[in-house]
Nucleic acid binder design. Structure first.
Lengths: 213, 213
DNA sequence: GTCAAAGGCTAACGATCACTAGCCATCATG
DNA sequence: CATGATGGCTAGTGATCGTTAGCCTTTGAC
């Protein structure tokens, strides 16, 4: 018992530990995951530290041996979420130079994230208001960066004469929001797989920007 | 002072009063509106009855002369919201027999609602979890009804050979979610007016379903 | 003018919570 | 075997909040 150490999980883009080094990270991970699930289910304010503790077989106060505060849990969950999408976006765009394909890949990555990490995405959109101001501003800036990156792709496609778009601004919003919505209805045991949905939304995006004639 | 009585407000589709008749409704209305704003800003759990009271120049306990509980406030706000969209949807669809135009009008109504009533819409999507189970089920059913109604339009267009759609289900979700997203970013003092946005989204919808060849 | 209802207030009750204090067990290290 | 760090626990503390009790003022109907 107790031989896992770094507990290799594929989620990356994590924010600074903010806890005395030397602590075994795997317990902290489990706490974060439990908190995520509960925050989504009952809301941040509606979740008690005892709830989170119970989910990892601890009493509430014991959590403070691993975490500074409830607020820190929320802040870390939200920043890890945005950094993850952003990284996926950059990687997707870097795979090609063709603007049409870049937008398609970006939309696919966007959708894939919102399906695979639906809890993170959901939390990110719902609990912004419960974030302490000093954390909130940074998160908002990151979100705006992400949107701007999408907007640039649309503008570039228009400039190159590859897209036909009446309002790049509104079209970008539509593009982003339809993908964001996936986080709300997606189910792992649903009819469509993540890949199918991502591909289909790529198609829809091409239609929205009037690509490919 | 005190000569308004029924306080003619254009919002309809209100749920049953649930308060002894003879009470002047205008005060109750103001409480509901204040609660809506605060629930959106701070979340349901993060808003106190004293907060709501202060917004209408009352102390917290005085609210109970007009309202049964905090929970009732939430439930009433949420049901009035859904009933309103649903009514707008039905009215929009009834204006024409042409399936293409019906879907366009439905999307326009959807977007218009989410822009004009962004607080209601936002609350509806965020605070479902804080609704007591007995209220929640009814609300969820109403939401599903609404989605189904959209889905039927898409299916009908496909069946009539007017739309070209790979997956009606996913396309309907995309259609709905892009409109729902408007509630998140719309500002009254923004660049685009409600009408401009609604019209533009109507166009985007036509592209999504491959209408008009 | 009386009187009852309507609607405001203050005070307080009873829960609930985030978080702290302080104690004890385990265990790796010398 | 000593020991000190790690991480668990129970028992509070202090704050907050929904809601109720009970009182007082205003006001409209007769």
């Amino acid at each position: 018992m107790g031989l896992e150490h770094t507990g290799a999980r594929p989620v990356d883009g994590r924010i600074a530990p903010a806890v005395p080094l030397g602590v075994t990270p795997s317990r902290r991970e489990r706490i974060l995951d439990a908190a995520l699930e509960l925050f989504v289910e009952r809301g941040y304010a509606g979740t008690t530290m005892d709830d989170i503790g119970a989910a990892v077989d601890l009493k509430g106060p014991s959590l403070y041996k691993h975490v500074r505060s409830k607020q820190e849990l929320l802040a870390e969950l939200m920043s890890r979420s945005i950094l993850t999408v952003h990284a996926a976006h950059d990687a997707a765009v870097a795979t090609t130079d063709d603007i049409e394909l870049q937008l398609r890949r970006a939309v696919e990555a966007h959708v894939r994230f919102h399906a695979r990490n639906r809890l993170d995405a959901f939390l990110g959109s719902r609990e912004l208001g419960n974030l302490a101001p000093e954390h909130r501003d940074g998160i908002i800036r990151l979100r705006k960066d992400y949107e701007r990156s999408f907007r640039r792709l649309v503008d570039a496609g228009v400039a190159a004469g590859r897209f036909s778009v009446r309002s790049p601004k509104l079209t970008t919003f539509a593009l982003l929001d339809m993908g964001t919505g996936v986080a709300v209805w997606f189910r792992d045991d649903g009819e469509a797989s993540v890949d199918e949905i991502a591909y289909h939304y790529g198609d829809l995006a091409m239609r929205l920007v009037g690509a490919g004639r």
